[in-house]
Nucleic acid binder design. Structure first.
Lengths: 253, 253
DNA sequence: CGATTACTTGAAACATATCAAGATTCGTGG
DNA sequence: CCACGAATCTTGATATGTTTCAAGTAATCG
């Protein structure tokens, strides 16, 4: 396995690692879901580059030309946009198996920045070649459409959250969402390490960082969770879910 | 042209009208954008049914099985979801040329309701057949992906709006968005008729109806717009846009 | 034309933001 | 490995914007 590491403060490091969707443990969360082995090997041919992005570095920047989607192999990302006066708004947090970059398809320009919140690795998916392959593999086409659609549903859930919920409910929804996504990846549903700052959480949820901090403290005082800086443990999952029972038409986030 | 009108209070009326994307004036806002004539006639074969939905009726309901996307031929829709305790959240307003239903692709179940806010007509696009056709026409594939991606970008803009803006800014963004979309369809950018109630606007923007009403009055008092119940005229477009200058990374909504 | 729905406006209540200060943690270079 | 400076987090007091409650008016539908 040859490895060419190019160290640079801004640009992500590029590896010439051999990838294989066909034996990737994340397949069922990702593009290969539902594909028979024969088709998987075609995906293997397409996705031949892995890219390493270190904590704090960006994977792509808003305004740059769009060429590839990225599947997260390992790590954790935020996507965010900057307003004219320099404030940032976080538009999403992204875990292993998720696809980033679909927002750029509409204009061929990335609509947001993607920044690693921990040392990460992504699989690069050249989009033009993906479109070609999609035309030949109906199951891949269907899965790709599902992934795009899922993103739309997810964003609309966030809209409902921002439009309807109070701070306590927002933070509860946020934690439950992380919990579910952890569980789907085989990790603990009840305890995890937050990769983002209070400010980033607040930006995503439409709250100020002080409010996020206060709300964590309140949820802890009331016995829902324990918080120790970045470590969160859900003590009473049922009651935490009950906080949202009246505002979720289906699963929130 | 044979026409079979079935009157019913709940179900949309079904017409057996002949449709033709190939001579539709909305083509450039819709699925046919960028297709050569030869391919257009294939789309014509696919989209053979038009459906008439009267004001107040739904086009589809949340929870029902997904079979078709719908392109708005004429009219105006809202999409909305109900929370468990019966409140509704509006997730979007939709004008001619726009495609509705993509949120259902992820699960094969509609994630929201679609209700006509005026007498409307939609073109029904059977999704399985669309996927087949997309595999044969690369330009159609590209356009479909763009439409899905555009929806994601739009939803993320709403997230930024709900997360960052105060009431006055939200309402300004809302009016400017309607203005732009009107202009793109050849209508006036400065004056239009609101199809939705104050409550629906508020639901979409994360505000109470009283706040929407007050904000309209305030924008009128300050000379940005005039409001006469459902009629809105933008008096000073530049100043209205300036209200948003500090919170938009690019076009809002 | 009467009843229902939609809209406007005011006053008070409430939730979150803002400002501020101190404590803790993290990253970096010595 | 330690120490220092920067970044992050917590908590309190006050300010602000939006919601809630309430009442009255206007418009729409049958």
């Amino acid at each position: 396995m040859s490895e060419a590491v190019v160290k640079d403060n801004q640009k992500p490091v590029l590896h010439a690692l051999k990838l294989a969707c066909s034996n990737c443990s994340l397949a069922e969360l990702c593009l290969p879901f539902g594909l028979p082995d024969a088709d998987l090997s075609q995906l293997d041919l397409l996705i031949d580059q892995r890219r390493s992005v270190r904590r704090g570095e960006h994977l792509y920047q808003a305004g740059t030309h769009f060429e590839s989607l990225y599947a997260i192999r390992r790590g954790f990302f935020k996507t965010h946009a900057l307003t004219e006066d320099g404030r940032e708004q976080v538009t999403g947090f992204h875990m292993t198996g998720e696809i980033m970059g679909v927002d750029a398809i509409s204009t061929d320009i990335h609509a947001c920045h993607a920044t690693a919140l921990e040392d990460s690795e992504v699989c690069e998916i050249p989009f033009t070649r993906l479109e070609n392959l999609i035309r030949e593999i109906p199951a891949l086409q269907r899965q790709f459409h599902r992934i795009m659609s899922r993103e739309i549903v997810r964003d609309q859930s966030v809209m409902m959250l921002l439009g309807n919920m109070r701070a306590e409910e927002r933070v509860a929804a946020f934690l439950l969402n992380l919990s579910q996504r952890n569980a789907a990846r085989g990790y603990s549903a009840s305890g995890f390490h937050l990769r983002m700052t209070r400010e980033e959480i607040g930006s995503f949820m439409g709250l100020k960082l002080e409010t996020v901090s206060r709300t964590f403290s309140k949820l802890q005082d009331e016995g829902y969770i324990t918080v120790d800086k970045k470590r969160v443990d859900i003590i009473d999952m049922e009651r935490l879910k009950a906080l949202l029972s009246h505002c979720s038409p289906r699963n929130v986030l």
